[in-house]
Amino acid sequence: MTMGLTPKNKLQNKDLNWKDLNDTLHSNINYVGDTATIKLSDYPSLTEAEIKAEAEKNGYTVTNKSEGYLGFS
């Protein structure tokens, strides 16, 4: 019996929110030198400016990693 692939799942767009971002940052940044990178398109309800302002207000350093990505430390 030959087993092949099944059809690809219908893809959905991510719609992550503040809680998701907070969880990502807290799970990835725990020690000096730790960083996290997010893809802005995964957070369509949040603007880049909102994310940067909120992160910086809470002690994170935010950098533009490349087009559409932000880095946090």
Rank of each mutant, 00 (worst) to 15 (best):
M1P: 11
M1S: 13
M1A: 13
T2G: 12
T2S: 12
T2D: 15
M3Q: 13
M3W: 10
G4T: 02
G4V: 04
L5W: 01
T6F: 05
K8Q: 06
N9R: 15
N9T: 02
K10L: 12
K10M: 02
K10N: 00
Q12I: 14
Q12R: 06
N13W: 07
N13M: 00
K14T: 05
K14H: 04
K14W: 00
K14I: 00
L16M: 10
L16R: 03
L16H: 02
L16K: 11
L16E: 02
N17L: 00
N17S: 09
N17E: 11
W18P: 03
D20Q: 04
D20M: 04
L21H: 09
N22T: 09
D23T: 07
T24E: 09
T24Q: 11
T24V: 10
L25W: 02
L25G: 09
L25V: 00
L25N: 05
H26W: 03
H26Y: 02
S27Q: 04
S27R: 12
N28H: 12
N28W: 03
N28C: 01
I29H: 13
I29W: 04
N30S: 12
Y31F: 13
Y31Q: 02
V32Y: 01
V32T: 10
V32F: 10
G33W: 08
D34C: 01
T35E: 07
T35V: 12
T35G: 11
T37N: 13
T37S: 11
I38F: 00
K39L: 07
K39T: 06
L40D: 07
Y43W: 02
Y43E: 00
Y43C: 08
Y43I: 00
P44W: 00
E48Y: 03
E48N: 05
A49Y: 07
A49P: 05
E50C: 09
E50Q: 14
E50V: 13
E50F: 08
E50P: 06
K52W: 05
K52S: 15
K52I: 15
E54W: 14
A55T: 11
A55P: 12
K57P: 01
Y60K: 03
Y60T: 06
V62C: 05
T63R: 13
N64R: 07
N64D: 14
E67A: 09
E67Y: 15
E67H: 10
G68I: 00
G68H: 01
G68Y: 10
Y69E: 11
L70K: 06
L70H: 02
G71W: 07
F72H: 00
